[in-house]
């Protein structure tokens, strides 16, 4: 479990992850906010459908890819948490359009 080590429980931003509300502080990346909410699985891989989560937190491993507001292949560690965002796990290959969300096997 990740916790806020400075004891500061400020909630400044809320967004949605897989339909659930997640809170964040100003300046949090999506990845940080999700880790704080005890979410560590962000996606599954294309070939073997293995679970992955954030690894490097500096934008170079591309393991933290999520779908933000319908846009696939977003690095959660590079995206700032913003009020009202809708974030989903990226299962396998990315989806292309709203019609294909939930469609699957790619």
């Amino acid at each position: 479990m990740f916790k806020r080590a400075d004891g500061n429980a400020n909630v400044e931003i809320t967004f949605e992850f897989e339909g659930q509300t997640v809170t964040a502080r100003r300046g949090d990346s999506i990845a940080a906010a999700l880790l704080a909410a005890d979410e560590i699985v962000f996606r599954s891989t294309s070939e073997r459908r293995r679970p992955r989560g954030p690894f490097c937190m500096m934008g170079i491993c591309f393991d933290c890819l999520v779908i933000i507001n319908g846009e696939p292949n977003q690095q959660a560690c590079q995206a700032r948490a913003v009020n009202g965002m809708s974030v989903r796990r990226q299962i396998g290959a990315a989806t292309l359009s709203a019609d294909e969300e939930g469609a699957n096997d790619g």
Binding site: S46, G92, A93, A94, T95, L96, A103, N104, D105, G106
Partner: peptide, 16 residues
């Protein structure tokens, strides 16, 4: 004559 035709490839996408 030698030329260099360019190719690009995308990230994986569901089959379309």
């Amino acid at each position: 004559i030698a030329h260099a035709p360019m190719l690009m490839i995308t990230a994986r996408m569901p089959a379309f």
